[in-house]
Simulated scan of single mutants.
Amino acid sequence: MADDSFGVLLERLALSKRIDLVAAVQQAGMRSELEAVLRGGSPGSDLLRVLAPVLGWHAADVFALADVSLPDGLRSAGRSRGSGVPTLVRSFIALGPEQQAEVLQFVASMPAEGPTAPVRTPPHMVYPSGPGGILMRLIWNRGLAWSAIAQTLAVSTGRYWSAATYGGVPRFPEF
């Protein structure tokens, strides 16, 4: 990507979703901040929170795209960082389409719970800007650490890379 600034990424995303960002944030009184971001400025937390529903994304994912640290209220809670996800994915894949639809409907109907004790991002999981960094920040927002990523993708795709490989991909532009 020639220019991976948040403003460029935001414009591309809005174009693909056919969203008029300026009109969407005008009501929140953040037009000037948005225009500054589109010219290469850094976004503030308030703007990112306003953009999330406009884009149809979770606020934490907009923070990941912008490479802005998550506020405590958006950090996921938990100790395991996704260790049970590979088993859940394996079980889900084994279900038929009707049962999968039932599970998805049940999950969507569950109430959202806020974090009780936010998990801080360890230094080795702070990634540089770029596509790989964005992807890994989005995955971290899903509660998956490197080991859970490797196991989940092995279960769902049949392809296994070591956990450290997933951690290293964003650090090497030639990948």
Results as ranks from 00 to 15, higher is better:
90 R>L: 10
47 L>Q: 06
21 L>Y: 00
61 D>L: 04
56 G>W: 04
141 N>G: 01
22 V>K: 05
106 F>C: 15
138 L>S: 00
163 A>M: 07
36 A>S: 05
108 A>K: 09
100 Q>N: 00
1 M>N: 14
48 L>D: 00
132 G>Q: 07
20 D>Q: 05
71 P>Y: 02
131 P>R: 01
26 Q>V: 11
14 A>N: 00
173 P>V: 10
148 A>E: 03
137 R>T: 00
174 E>H: 13
83 S>N: 11
74 L>C: 04
116 T>Y: 13
27 Q>N: 12
138 L>C: 04
31 R>E: 12
84 G>Y: 12
49 R>S: 11
35 E>V: 09
63 F>L: 00
2 A>P: 07
37 V>I: 08
157 T>G: 05
90 R>H: 08
21 L>H: 01
167 G>E: 00
49 R>N: 09
36 A>L: 06
28 A>L: 09
85 V>R: 07
71 P>C: 06
122 P>C: 06
92 F>L: 05
5 S>D: 06
111 P>W: 03
137 R>N: 02
148 A>P: 02
129 S>R: 13
38 L>D: 09
40 G>Q: 05
31 R>S: 12
150 A>Q: 01
64 A>I: 03
50 V>W: 01
60 A>C: 13
132 G>S: 08
126 V>K: 09
172 F>T: 12
26 Q>W: 14
96 G>Q: 06
81 R>Q: 14
11 E>R: 10
30 M>W: 07
71 P>R: 02
153 L>A: 02
124 H>A: 13
175 F>Q: 08
54 V>N: 04
127 Y>Q: 06
95 L>W: 04
39 R>A: 08
162 S>E: 13
23 A>C: 13
33 E>Q: 14
78 G>V: 01
69 S>E: 10
8 V>E: 05
131 P>Y: 05
159 R>N: 11
158 G>Q: 04
142 R>A: 07
8 V>P: 02
66 A>H: 02
50 V>G: 08
142 R>C: 06
17 K>L: 11
8 V>A: 08
47 L>D: 08
79 R>C: 14
39 R>M: 10
90 R>I: 03
73 G>S: 13
29 G>W: 07
25 V>I: 11
72 D>K: 05
163 A>G: 10
60 A>K: 07
166 Y>P: 02
103 V>D: 12
105 Q>Y: 14
140 W>I: 04
27 Q>I: 15
159 R>C: 09
129 S>A: 15
120 R>Q: 14
155 V>Y: 04
164 A>M: 14
97 P>A: 12
171 R>F: 12
5 S>E: 07
62 V>D: 00
